[in-house]
């Protein structure tokens, strides 16, 4: 009983002292992830649509996707943050992190959208073409609605992965969750509590996103399949 109260008291004082820092860091992680996700979705969709419309974009986009999916995020961030000044790009840690993660995310979303487009049988496009339906209309009314269902699960998985990948930003000194936890570890000489809290926070975020998106997915697809 005594051990339990000591345990709880230690946690209470730890949270009282470091809670605000963790909360601030949580906000940093969330806002960087959200920027990366939104920019990644827009850029990735644009890239995929672009290369379907303009054949000469196929090679460049393929190279871009190949590079950003075939190399670790860490190297990409290092190139941007430490190598950037050499080519005139000087950014603070957080903006560099946001830019780096956006480019990284876009490559993955591009591939997800590609799989979505390819899952629609060619015959449907042919039918639309024969009926005289214009390409943009076909995209909006025929392709995108069907894609939404196919694309949603991998996209959600990618979102969760991106939130976790944001931890890598700590290595280029962005003051997000992981960096804050290690900083507090160094200052206070506490090891177990910061790390446990860190793991717990990420775990809760991952599970929460999975649950919420599961509900959203069910609602959305019901709306589509009527």
């Amino acid at each position: 009983m005594d051990a339990l109260t000591t345990f709880l008291l230690r946690w209470q004082s730890f949270l009282a002292e470091n809670g605000p820092d963790f909360a601030a860091a949580l906000w940093v992680t969330i806002r960087i992830s959200m920027v990366a996700i939104v920019c990644g979705l827009i850029l990735g969709f644009a890239a995929e649509l672009g290369r379907r419309i303009c054949p000469w974009l196929r090679r460049p986009v393929a190279c871009y996707v190949e590079f950003f999916r075939g190399t670790p995020l860490l190297i990409q961030l290092y190139l941007l943050y430490y190598g950037g000044p050499r080519v005139g790009i000087v950014l603070d840690a957080e903006p560099a992190g946001m830019l780096g993660m956006s480019l990284y995310a876009a490559a993955y979303f591009c591939e997800i959208f590609r799989a979505g487009f390819e899952s629609i049988p060619e015959g449907q496009r042919e039918a639309a073409h024969c009926l005289g339906i214009r390409p943009w209309r076909r995209l909006w009314r025929i392709e995108l609605p069907q894609m939404a269902q196919i694309v949603l699960p991998p996209a959600v998985n990618q979102i969760i992965t991106l939130i976790k990948d944001s931890a890598v930003l700590s290595i280029i000194t962005v003051a997000e969750l992981t960096k804050t936890a290690t900083r507090i570890m160094n200052i206070s000489f506490e090891i177990v509590m910061p790390l446990c809290l860190l793991a717990l926070l990420y775990w809760i975020i991952s599970e929460a996103v999975a649950v919420v998106s599961g509900k959203a997915e069910a609602r959305l697809t019901r709306h589509l399949t009527r």
Partner: peptide, 22 residues
Amino acid sequence: ISFLRGIPVLVILFLLFYMPSA
């Protein structure tokens, strides 16, 4: 499965690296 998929690899690394020193 839920725990190990729900936290970043970096955090797993730190957990296994620093916890034993406690």
